[in-house]
Design a protein around this nucleic acid. Structure first.
Lengths: 209, 209
DNA sequence: TAGATTGTTAATCGATTAACAATC
DNA sequence: TAGATTGTTAATCGATTAACAATC
């Protein structure tokens, strides 16, 4: 078994992917680790080290083929699999994600949303049907989606996460502002904290005075 | 001058703050680095090291006073200053932030929003007035807000950032999905990338199969 | 071939962890 | 006083950077 790649490396892959995709859209064919590094504010060394965790995608004396490298990274991240996703909590943020977020680009297909508000339940948003939370179990049945997006109120985070875990969900993209860190479980979580991000910026702004 | 505290440490402060605030709300009076560590999934050593970058807030044999430590961290982050913020781009995400995000908690007061859409310009959302982008300069005048929240389309990111920089804005909370990394400037940026977050989760989910 | 740039090993740097004396 | 827990120094670990032989 190949040794585990560090999370620091994994978190840089989407940045590489994003920039390579842009380059490709602009018609660029090749890129060197040096110019990629300059563009992304990293070192050439680091980029080569990162990529070589997964294989030798470059060619000495030439660099990397933009389209190929982009596709390789997409494959590494699993962006082509189009796993299924559901979204729980159709408030402002949930709605914003349903309407505007490109799940496909990130390897997921949003198949349904869930809420408890009478006006919302039964409607369709951006062609995604909204069901009642009570029907979550019956909707999922024995074929659980891989991902659940949590945009529910913080107060119901833990009980909902437990429900999802029992249903066999593999990942939770958690916007509830309560950290989930499942132990002894194969459930994977990405906790998103707007607060943390802005508080950090607050510090940095004030520090520079 | 005290030596610069690393960004890794700074990014943990909001987590400490968040959890201490919760503890305080629950009426807890004291906490040790050990139990804090257990709760947050860190080591006691790390927490003590982190806090001691800023001062000795604890007491040997006792631990830390929850309320005091919370307040100290708030002060370090600058959460009490209530700097002014404006928001550019009143689409779905901008609207969600205006309606639901607690800027006050993060050290900012949202004073105005800007957009170009006829129906939106001139309205008020959650009591925040929405002005036309053309009036940005005259609104700001010679008293610029400290922060600008960017929820505009990616295509206009760079030109807008330049405008803001010229106006003397200190920080940009950037949701445009285009990285800003200003050089030779005192402008500070926090780039938020939903894509990166979900792509990372996509990798982690697929890896565990 | 000469020039460029990779893949990879070794060196450096920084961050985390461990240990323990100080002390409440 | 005895027990607990900090503040802080030293040890370890991991990640980043530098260097360079391989090779296109």
């Amino acid at each position: 078994m190949s040794k585990k790649v560090s999370l620091a490396v994994i978190r840089r892959l989407p940045k590489y992917y994003r920039y390579l995709d842009e380059l490709h859209a602009r018609g660029e064919v090749r890129i060197s680790s040096g110019s990629l590094a300059k563009e992304l504010g990293l070192t050439a060394s680091q980029i080569r080290q990162d990529l070589n965790c997964f294989g030798g995608f470059g060619q000495q004396g030439y660099g990397y083929n933009v389209e190929n490298l982009r596709n390789q990274i997409a494959a590494i991240l699993g962006l082509n699999k189009q796993n299924r996703a559901i979204l729980l909590g159709v408030g402002n943020l949930g709605r914003a994600l349903i309407n505007n977020f490109n799940f496909e680009k990130c390897g997921f297909t949003l198949v349904a949303a869930f809420d408890v508000t009478p006006g919302t339940v039964g409607s369709k948003i951006n062609n995604i049907p909204v069901y009642h939370m009570d029907s979550l179990e019956s909707f999922v049945g024995d074929n659980p989606p891989e991902l659940a997006v949590l945009t529910i109120p913080p107060t119901v985070t833990f009980e909902t996460a437990e429900r999802l875990e029992e249903l066999g969900i593999k990942g939770i993209w958690n916007f509830t502002n309560r950290d989930l860190r499942p132990e002894n479980s194969s459930l994977k979580v990405e906790n998103v904290h707007f607060d943390d991000s802005l508080m950090t910026l607050c510090y940095i702004i004030n520090e520079s005075d």
